[in-house]
Nucleic acid binder design. Structure first.
Lengths: 138, 138
DNA sequence: ATAAAATGCTACAAAAAGGTAGTAATTATG
DNA sequence: CATAATTACTACCTTTTTGTAGCATTTTAT
């Protein structure tokens, strides 16, 4: 598994919210639309609130909205928040092989590909996603 | 986690074997050198045998050796074998978001970075690793 | 032969991830 | 004020992954 299921759910939710134009997204709606297990989703949403990506409002007509500008949320941030900082910087040969022999022999060979991936994730915000989505549609 | 622990172990083992020059690698040696839990490693090695990367010989003086030329084993193959074919081709927004809206809005933006990563993994063999390792040392 | 050094196999335990259920707290609306 | 709609919290269950234990089997060296 490249990313955990929970991280995929998180990206799904944020991507969905970023590409629509409602002013409130209740858990139940997201559950229906994205087919993410109801209760599990609820916990995920709470978690995403605590992490500052979205904000919740309780009570009738409550739900979730973005807590910051779409342009201020990029994919690397989300993945970091969900998987831990190391996830993207990990040595593909495992720490052991990497540390034992000092600089992991593959770091050079891979750093290009890896850093390109990392840059792409860092440089792509939810605003970019929204823009692309709306353009592709119209 | 980007790759499962077991996959990292597998890469560690193969990388270790590829960069040394013994003609036999018993599990116990790999356990000592790589600090991978003894019994878990044993199962992993059996698994790697069944998958055709290495071959085992039992009995005294037994152990593991590569089952094919180093140049015939690349990193993509190992990752595929350990994580399943889909691991590298997965849609980062999760299948749901991807399918609901037909072509996932991000596929274009990411396909570059992702395919570069995939190519690198496919084009890098254990022979390349060995060569680089021995050059860096000497 | 026998003992030592290996792998193969099977069953189980522990930890992490994923998923379910229900109650409490909060808020808008009639 | 009462009710309905909503999030917050807590506890528990299931599945997958990781790790442990031990015995059976194979091979080599003495």
């Amino acid at each position: 598994m490249i990313l955990g299921k929970t991280t995929e759910y998180a990206l799904s939710v944020l991507a969905y919210m970023a590409t629509r134009s409602q002013d409130m997204y209740p858990a139940e709606l997201l559950h229906r639309e994205l087919k993410i297990p109801r209760h599990y989703l609820r916990r995920l949403l709470t978690d995403l609130s605590k992490k500052g990506f979205i904000a919740s409002s309780r009570g009738r007509n409550g739900g979730f909205v973005f807590a910051r500008e779409l342009s201020m949320i990029n994919f690397a941030q989300v993945i970091d928040a969900m998987e831990g900082e190391e996830a993207m910087n990990i040595c593909l040969l495992g720490f052991t092989a990497c540390i034992v022999d000092k600089p992991c022999a593959m770091h050079d060979l891979w750093s290009d590909a890896r850093s390109k991936m990392a840059e792409t994730l860092k440089n792509t915000s939810l605003a970019d996603l929204r823009e692309k989505y709306l353009n592709d549609k119209g």
